[in-house]
C-alpha cells in the first residue's frame, strides 16, 4: 500500500467538468501514463431514524473485496463483501436510505511508473458535481516521506500550487498509510460536494482543499441526505 492523495480539481462549472477531465487525461498520457481500466468509488448513506445514527457505506474498486462503513464520528469499519447483504437484511427495518443520495466517483485509471493516477467525475444522484484526482505513490507507506514528490507531480499536472495536504491527511503525515485513509479523504470531498450547489462555480483553491468559501469543518461531516 502506498500513499494516496485525493485532490479536488477546480472547475469553472459543470459544463467544464468533461473538458477539464479530458485535458487531465491527455496530460497524464503525455507524461507516459498507461491506461489501466476504470475505477469507481461510491458512497451510500443509511439512516437509523430511531437512534438518529448515520452511516456511510463506501466501496472502492481498488479494494474490491472490502466494504467500508464510516460513521459520523469518523470511525471506519472495514468489512468483507458480505456486508452488503447484511445491510440489505437490515434495511428497511433498521436502516433507511434516501433515493438520489448515492455519490459516485468514476473515471479512468492510469499507471505511470510507480504512480497510479485516477481522474474521477463525482456525481450525486444524476448531477455531476465535481472532479477529483487521486494520486498514489506505491512504494512508500508514509505520507511525510513522499509528500513533496507527489506534490511536484500534481502541481505539474494540475497547474495549480498545492501548499499543504488536506485536513485529514495533515494529521497523519507520519503514520503508515492505510486504505481507510483513502476512503476518509474521499468522504471529505464528497461532503464538500454534497453541500455545494451544482450550478455554483468552485473557485480556485488556495490550499489543497477546494471550496474556499465553504466551511473547513469537513472533518466531522453531517450529511444532509
Amino acid at each position: 500500500m502506498g500513499v494516496v492523495i485525493v485532490h479536488m480539481v477546480p472547475c469553472s462549472g459543470p459544463e467544464a467538468l468533461q473538458s477539464t477531465a479530458d485535458n487531465l487525461c491527455r496530460m497524464i498520457e503525455r507524461i507516459g501514463g498507461q491506461r489501466d481500466g476504470v475505477f469507481c468509488v461510491d458512497c451510500e448513506t443509511y439512516f437509523n431514524t430511531s437512534m438518529g445514527r448515520t452511516q456511510h457505506v463506501l466501496h472502492d474498486s481498488e479494494h474490491p473485496a472490502s466494504v467500508f462503513s464510516l460513521l459520523e464520528s469518523g470511525l471506519c469499519l472495514v468489512a468483507d463483501a458480505n456486508f452488503d447483504s447484511l445491510m440489505n437484511k437490515l434495511t428497511p427495518q433498521l436502516f433507511t436510505t434516501k433515493m438520489g443520495t448515492k455519490v459516485e466517483c468514476k473515471g479512468p485509471r492510469y499507471q505511470v511508473e510507480d504512480f497510479v493516477l485516477k481522474v474521477g467525475t463525482v456525481t450525486i444522484g444524476t448531477s455531476a458535481r465535481g472532479l477529483l484526482v487521486e494520486c498514489e505513490y506505491q512504494p512508500c507507506p508514509v505520507t511525510a516521506s513522499c509528500w513533496e514528490l507527489m506534490r511536484e507531480l500534481m502541481e505539474s499536472l494540475l497547474g495549480v500550487p498545492l501548499n499543504q495536504p488536506g485536513p485529514y491527511l495533515a494529521l497523519r503525515m507520519r503514520e503508515i498509510y492505510t486504505p481507510v485513509d483513502t476512503i476518509q479523504q474521499y468522504m471529505e470531498h464528497f461532503n464538500v460536494l454534497r453541500k455545494s450547489n451544482p450550478v455554483q462555480a468552485v473557485s480556485a483553491p488556495a490550499s489543497g482543499q477546494s471550496g474556499g468559501q465553504t466551511n473547513q469543518n469537513a472533518q466531522t461531516p453531517t450529511s444532509k441526505g
Binding site: 500500500m1 489501466d36 481500466g37 476504470v38 475505477f39 469507481c40 461510491d42 466501496h59 474498486s61 481498488e62 479494494h63 474490491p64 473485496a65 472490502s66 472495514v78 468483507d80 463483501a81 485509471r109 492505510t178 486504505p179
Partner: peptide, 16 residues
C-alpha cells in the same frame, strides 16, 4: 483482505 486486495489487478468495470 483489504490490505491484500490491492495487490490484485484492479481492472474492474463495476464493483463486485
Amino acid at each position: 483482505g483489504y490490505r491484500i486486495m490491492q495487490a490484485e489487478a484492479p481492472i474492474v468495470e463495476q464493483p463486485l
